[in-house]
Design a protein around this nucleic acid. Structure first.
Lengths: 196, 196
DNA sequence: CACATCTTGAACTGATCAGTTCAGGATAGA
DNA sequence: TCTATCCTGAACTGATCAGTTCAAGATGTG
């Protein structure tokens, strides 16, 4: 089982990402990663780097993959802010509903652990959360909301999006997650002008 | 330094609670707890129990202490729902603003770790979150909201309260946390009848 | 003083952790 | 067939972990 052939890097990274996502940084050992990826322990170190490096790659991978989806969902924010916001939360709700994927959110999990993460990893987690916030800010500012309202809704939505991770990990039902989002969507509906 | 005198159990439990709160279950070792409480390693096992037992005591302590405050904040919910909701979030915001205490929330942190916690601890974390939800449900149902709206706001508020923990751990500013809460309070203002 | 009680520090067990090393097996191209 | 390349399993290091045990010291009470 060796020679010139190689394992599939994308598959391996996905498996590592899911493992970190499910168990978090502290509760994932390199042996866990070996089992999850099917790669030998030595191969992990030679091909994917040490635990910190690999975690960073997984965090980036996660941020890129779902960042794209969030961007796509928010692309119509200027003309259809309400639809964009619904689509934004749908990205998260669908991810949580996917039985193939762990509950929660790798970024939320990492954010929660920031005080005990290495400085490099902590910085990356903050950065990912910051990107999410700018994404929302840009989208909402493009719509009819005042800058002040846009800012407040952006931060609020970033927060609500994180709380879906916490609540899903605690076993909240899809209906409950919908209720959480529903109040925010309702607030936005009221805040948008021209709908009296 | 021994004999008949004893350490102060309340002080020790508080110190252990803060340690778990700051670093989480996985990243807190018994040596950390020993340093934090000032108690000898042997004394921890003989007086406070093993790590799991001690964590449960800390979780209960945390839930009881802040549960009382949340109850007090919500006590006027029937007559003054808006003020009650503001007071509810103020409990969390003031706790986060306290420089003596860690950021975040022990229950939110535990909820996030549920998939990797021991069954007993996971159950207690779910239970604490459940208590919070019932607290909110009971308070909001006592007001003028429809049962459906009360349920949705209760779940939403429980979620937003959790997200304050995530965001504060990630370094969000007090103003941002206020923005998060502000949208929810605004939504409730709109939902309450008799304010057109 | 003598005793009972409590705390302490230190050592120890067995397990797990991250990270490294390396001999040998498997493969592909020459 | 020969050779370069890559992967594998396994062992190993040094550190840390939870949990236990115990002799020695310190104190208050009689």
């Amino acid at each position: 089982m060796a020679g010139k052939k190689q394992f599939d890097m994308d598959t391996a990274l996905d498996a590592a990402m899911v493992q970190f996502w499910r168990s978090g940084y502290a509760d994932t050992s390199v042996d866990d990663l070996s089992r999850a990826t099917g790669l030998n322990r030595s191969s992990i170190y030679s091909s994917l780097g040490d635990k910190d490096t690999l975690f960073l790659r997984c965090l980036d991978r996660y941020a890129a993959r779902y960042g794209e989806k969030y961007d796509a969902a928010l692309s119509c924010a200027a003309s259809e802010p309400l639809a964009a916001v619904r689509a934004f939360f749908d990205v998260t709700l669908e991810r949580i509903a996917d039985p193939e994927l762990p509950d929660g959110c790798l970024i939320a999990q990492s954010a929660m652990a920031i005080p005990v993460l290495s400085p490099a990893v902590a910085a990356r987690a903050r950065e990912s959360l910051g990107f999410q916030l700018s994404r929302l800010r840009t989208a909402l500012r493009a719509g009819p909301l005042s800058d002040q309202d846009a800012e407040a809704f952006a931060v609020h939505m970033a927060g609500v999006n994180q709380c879906l991770a916490v609540m899903s990990r605690a076993g909240a039902s899809p209906a409950q997650l919908l209720d959480i989002v529903g109040v925010t969507v309702g607030a936005l509906t009221q805040a948008l002008p021209g709908r009296e």
